[in-house]
Measured scan of single mutants.
Amino acid sequence: GAPPLPPYSAGGREVTMKKGDILTLLNSTNKDWWKVEVNDRQGFVPAAYVKKLDSGTGKELVLALYDYQEK
Results as ranks from 00 to 15, higher is better:
13 R>M: 14
32 D>I: 07
69 Q>C: 09
19 K>T: 06
5 L>C: 07
33 W>E: 00
5 L>P: 10
70 E>Y: 08
63 L>S: 04
62 V>A: 15
12 G>R: 08
71 K>G: 15
69 Q>D: 14
41 R>Q: 12
9 S>I: 10
66 Y>N: 04
68 Y>F: 15
33 W>A: 01
24 T>E: 10
44 F>E: 02
37 E>D: 07
37 E>W: 05
27 N>C: 09
26 L>D: 01
37 E>P: 01
1 G>Q: 11
24 T>Y: 12
8 Y>E: 09
17 M>F: 09
59 K>P: 14
51 K>G: 05
2 A>K: 12
11 G>W: 03
31 K>Q: 12
63 L>E: 12
39 N>C: 10
48 A>V: 11
68 Y>G: 00
25 L>D: 00
42 Q>H: 09
14 E>G: 12
30 N>M: 08
27 N>H: 05
63 L>I: 15
28 S>L: 04
63 L>W: 04
38 V>E: 04
38 V>N: 13
39 N>I: 13
13 R>W: 08
3 P>I: 06
33 W>P: 00
54 D>I: 11
42 Q>A: 13
11 G>M: 05
16 T>C: 09
69 Q>V: 13
62 V>W: 05
9 S>G: 13
13 R>Y: 14
66 Y>P: 00
50 V>C: 11
34 W>H: 02
16 T>D: 09
47 A>R: 07
7 P>E: 14
71 K>M: 14
71 K>T: 15
32 D>K: 05
20 G>I: 00
48 A>L: 13
34 W>N: 00
48 A>R: 12
70 E>L: 11
19 K>P: 04
27 N>P: 03
13 R>L: 13
53 L>H: 04
18 K>F: 08
9 S>M: 15
16 T>N: 12
35 K>F: 15
21 D>K: 02
3 P>V: 06
61 L>M: 11
25 L>E: 00
37 E>H: 05
71 K>Q: 15
68 Y>E: 00
27 N>W: 05
13 R>E: 13
14 E>N: 12
1 G>C: 12
16 T>M: 07
57 T>Q: 14
17 M>N: 01
37 E>K: 08
33 W>S: 01
47 A>F: 02
55 S>A: 11
64 A>R: 00
44 F>M: 06
53 L>P: 01
15 V>L: 15
66 Y>R: 06
19 K>D: 02
29 T>G: 09
54 D>L: 12
67 D>Y: 03
59 K>M: 12
10 A>Y: 06
35 K>N: 08
19 K>Y: 04
40 D>G: 15
44 F>S: 03
24 T>G: 07
39 N>F: 08
23 L>Q: 01
29 T>R: 09
71 K>E: 14
18 K>T: 09
37 E>V: 09
19 K>L: 05
60 E>S: 13
35 K>A: 07
61 L>N: 05
11 G>H: 14
49 Y>F: 10
30 N>V: 03
39 N>R: 13
59 K>Q: 14
22 I>A: 03
51 K>Q: 13
69 Q>R: 10
66 Y>H: 07
28 S>N: 08
54 D>C: 10
20 G>S: 02
47 A>Q: 04
35 K>P: 01
28 S>P: 06
23 L>M: 15
70 E>F: 09
62 V>C: 10
32 D>A: 06
26 L>A: 03
58 G>F: 08
35 K>Y: 15
12 G>M: 12
